[in-house]
Simulated assay, not measured.
Amino acid sequence: MFLSRAASDVTFVCDGDVELPAHRFLLCSKSLMFNRMFKHDMKEAQEGKIIVEDISAPILTEFLRFLYCRRVDSLEGGQPDQLLIEELFKVAEKYDVPTLKDLCERRLVQDVGVENAAEMYCLGDMYNGDVLKEQALRIMIRWRSYSLCECRPRHETAASRWRRRCKFWRVFICSYHETCPTLLSFAMVMSNFPRIASSSVVKAPSSRGCLDTT
């Protein structure tokens, strides 16, 4: 039934004129978003057409493949497509498909490293990926401590050490003040109180932008 026009009663339109046929009963059974859409007789239900402007045809195709076949081809190979997984993570959040979202999040968590920890934190924050946020934050804390130790001069005053620690988190304040408010809040606290990073447990900022520490 995947991309089959047989008995299809709804069509996705993306990238201007690309049409992907689908079936309402299956969409409703897999996604709460589609269930609400067709249940309440919205415009898409009346016209039998869902116009998608923010998702490309390849991403939408993989999304539908998961709904119909319960698999994502890019996750089955040795080198998964990181960008594709990120986009599917966003689509799963948009259309309320928790099984796909969890699958993508687990894969993203495995690939969090020093070079992308801040970006992955922002991704998790924007699309409600708490596990991804926690892993990214853990990596940032660990790398911060390591980098400060490696760069520490042999004879360093307390004031110099304080300034060096503050500098690390101020980088995030400059880089993410617009895209990720919660990371900004955390970075501001860390830049003023770097000793927090050495505490036994550091939790991600709450939705109110406050830092929780124990």
Rank of each mutant, 00 (worst) to 15 (best):
C69L: 13
A22W: 00
V10N: 01
G48P: 08
L103R: 00
K133A: 05
S56W: 03
A7T: 04
Q79K: 15
E115D: 07
S147Y: 10
C14G: 04
Y121K: 10
C151I: 08
R107D: 11
D54E: 10
V109D: 04
L60A: 03
W169Q: 10
Q82L: 15
A159Y: 08
I139K: 12
H23L: 00
A158G: 01
D41E: 15
A117L: 12
V201N: 07
D81E: 04
S8E: 00
S199R: 13
V112D: 09
I59D: 13
M126G: 07
D130L: 15
T182G: 06
A187W: 07
V171N: 08
S207G: 05
S206D: 13
M33V: 15
H155D: 15
A197H: 11
A204S: 13
F25Y: 09
R144N: 14
M188E: 10
D41A: 14
L84N: 03
E93F: 01
R24S: 02
L211H: 03
I51T: 11
E44S: 04
L183C: 12
E150Y: 05
E86I: 07
R65P: 00
R70L: 03
R138W: 00
V97I: 14
H40L: 15
W143A: 13
Y95E: 02
C174K: 12
P205N: 01
G129P: 07
L32S: 14
S29K: 02
Y176A: 01
D41G: 14
E44Y: 05
H23Q: 00
Q79I: 14
C122I: 09
N192A: 10
E86V: 11
Y95G: 01
L183W: 09
K101S: 02
L184D: 06
S56T: 13
V72M: 00
R163T: 12
D41K: 14
M120R: 11
R36W: 09
S147G: 10
C104H: 08
R165Q: 15
D96A: 10
M190V: 07
I173D: 04
N116V: 03
F12P: 00
E150S: 08
M33P: 01
K43W: 11
R36D: 14
R152D: 11
F38M: 10
A158R: 14
R164P: 04
S198P: 01
G129L: 06
D102N: 05
S8N: 00
K203V: 10
R138S: 08
R138A: 08
V10R: 04
S31K: 05
Q135N: 02
S74H: 10
R208A: 13
D73A: 13
C14I: 05
D125F: 13
T99C: 01
L27N: 00
T99F: 05
C210E: 09
K101F: 02
L26H: 00
I141P: 00
A22L: 01
R144G: 13
K133T: 11
R65Q: 13
F89R: 02
L26S: 01
K49L: 07
K101G: 00
L75K: 03
